[in-house]
Amino acid sequence: MSLDLGLPALERAAPRLMRAEPLLTMRDISKSFGNVRALRQVDATVYPGEVMGIVGESGSGKSTLLRMMNLEDTPDGGDYTLRLPGRENENLFDLARYERRMLCARHIGIVYQNPHLGLLMRHSSSGNVAERLLIAGERSFDVLRDKAREALDASEFPLDRMDARPIELSGGMQQRVQLAKAIALEPALLLLDEPTTGLDVSVQALVLDTLKRLQRDRQITMVLVSHDLGVIRTMADRVMVMRHGEVVEQGLADQVFQDPQHPYTQQLVHAKL
């Protein structure tokens, strides 16, 4: 019953979303680390402008899937396409390393749970944002400065600290620097791996507010991983539930939370309530 349920749920998605062509399509993604099967034939579809939530217990493969979406890692098998101009039908996993890196820098932004993964701690915050632009080829100092300031401002980062090093900043501010870096190039896809886990509740709410506002203002397509159902509920349009490397259920967030079909999801939702 598990996988079959995914498709009808998908068809029940909002009409606005269904009319559009998907931005992200992943087919049949599998990945093993030794004996651990981290992903088993995962399919994923994300439509332009929506927030896709991924929930699941620890070790269910959420981060691994997100790393694939960020082209940091390649799967044992499977296809990945993004509807970017000129790249519509290309399996991105077939790209050469250099092209993958450039595509990723230009079109995909990511925020990690651990800011040490996403930030250069010993460089300035504005510099962390500027590095993205530099990799994409921006060579004007004034433009770099302006765009870094703009992105930090959009992430509601206090601009008087823009040249401080992330290591001197609070956790919430570090996440805002990561976010600024991720959105500086106006990516087609924004990936968020537990962006608020580890922050205290009030800071978490503020960061979520920023994310929501960004989503509203810029219609950025987001994939948000969290094991906190509350976070997913406030943010996501649609949701994928993962367990043991498989997608056990997916559909509109409201429907999945109100009327969970898979026993595992039922358990999750009831535990939360």
Partner: peptide, 18 residues
């Protein structure tokens, strides 16, 4: 190999900032 000179540019950027 990746022509990844972002960090090198970054140090120049920060010298101007500082």
């Amino acid at each position: 190999a990746d022509a990844d000179y972002g960090k090198l540019w970054l140090t120049l950027y920060e010298q101007i900032v500082r």
